[in-house]
Amino acid sequence: MPRVPSLLSALTLAMLIGGTPLVAHAAETELEQQLVSARQEGSIWTAFALNRHLNPFKLSIDVKDGRATLNGRVESDVQKDLAEQVALSVEGIDSVDNRIEVDSAIAEGNPPGLVQHLEDATLAATVKSKLLWNSNTRGLDIQVRSENGAITLSGNAQTSAAKELAGQLAENTEGVSQVFNHLSISSADSSSSEVQTAVEEARENISDGWITSKVKASFLYSRNLDGLNIEVNTQDGLVTLRGKVLSNAEKRLAMDIARNIRGVRGVDADALLVNS
């Protein structure tokens, strides 16, 4: 990538800090696009799992900006074309990069059942969502794959701490049996990225309703927390937790989860009681 002249860099940073609402809008738009892509991936996974001609095969799916990339192996050209048509049938998918290989020697053997296909699709979408909601991992380039309950993370993280956090978020997801954290640490652009992220977060105006829904969902997704007994309210970015938990460890976990959701300015857990 060519070096950006220092004057242009200064002007760009000045625009970011100068108060334009376009920064917040662009950041929020990018997040929404990522969430849409995650949902579309889940929809394609489900469609493959429900199709008896495709569910015996291990196919991988990656969606970005309405373009689905398919990988894996099938027995025939008919199945390869079918996978492409199924992906195109999902709302919002405009094009497909079909990299599926045809191998007539594939033995179907004992394919994973429909239930496992659906569980893996749901797990991958759940972990992706948690990473996008978290203020410390939302901007990372992370791909999530689930197979028989095992989550594999690949892509880039800016620091070892960010890599570790991504792994912890995946491990703490209900239904995940193990996590293979293959994230690479690439700190080349970390300084400029951290500055931009800090400016964006300062400019974002995330609704209280969005925060409340994501805190509740994160509680329900957590393996070590009974989220059904916790009431969540948000006002001006301040999250208030009420209800009962089984231990001080659960209370601390609930506070940590809420604190790290994007847009949260503080957490009040005085009314979250520990059962004696």
Rank of each mutant, 00 (worst) to 15 (best):
E194N: 13
E194Q: 12
V195Q: 09
V195C: 00
Q196I: 11
Q196S: 15
A198Q: 14
V199E: 13
E200R: 11
E200Q: 15
E200G: 14
E200D: 13
E200H: 04
E200I: 01
E201Q: 13
A202K: 15
R203K: 13
R203D: 11
R203P: 00
E204D: 10
E204W: 03
N205A: 12
N205D: 15
I206R: 08
S207I: 00
S207V: 05
G209W: 14
G209Y: 10
W210G: 06
W210Y: 11
I211L: 12
I211R: 06
T212S: 15
T212E: 14
S213F: 09
S213Q: 13
S213Y: 09
S213T: 13
S213E: 15
K214Y: 04
K214E: 12
K214G: 06
K216I: 05
A217K: 12
S218M: 03
F219H: 01
F219G: 01
L220V: 11
Y221N: 09
S222T: 11
S222F: 04
S222P: 06
S222N: 12
R223F: 03
R223S: 11
R223D: 11
N224C: 06
N224D: 15
N224L: 10
N224H: 13
L225I: 04
L225K: 04
D226F: 05
D226S: 10
L228F: 13
E231V: 08
E231L: 13
E231N: 13
V232K: 01
N233Y: 03
N233G: 08
T234P: 00
Q235M: 04
D236F: 01
L238R: 07
L238S: 07
L238E: 09
L238V: 10
V239H: 00
V239T: 02
V239Q: 01
V239S: 00
T240R: 10
T240Y: 07
L241Q: 00
V245A: 09
V245W: 05
V245E: 07
N248P: 10
N248Y: 14
N248H: 15
N248Q: 14
A249P: 05
A249H: 09
A249L: 11
E250P: 06
E250D: 12
K251D: 02
K251F: 09
K251C: 02
K251L: 09
K251G: 06
R252Y: 12
A254F: 05
A254E: 01
M255T: 14
M255K: 12
D256M: 11
D256G: 09
I257G: 01
I257T: 03
A258R: 03
R262S: 04
R262L: 07
G263T: 04
G263M: 01
G263Q: 00
R265D: 12
A269N: 04
A269K: 03
D270A: 08
D270C: 04
L272Q: 02
L272M: 00
L273A: 12
V274H: 00
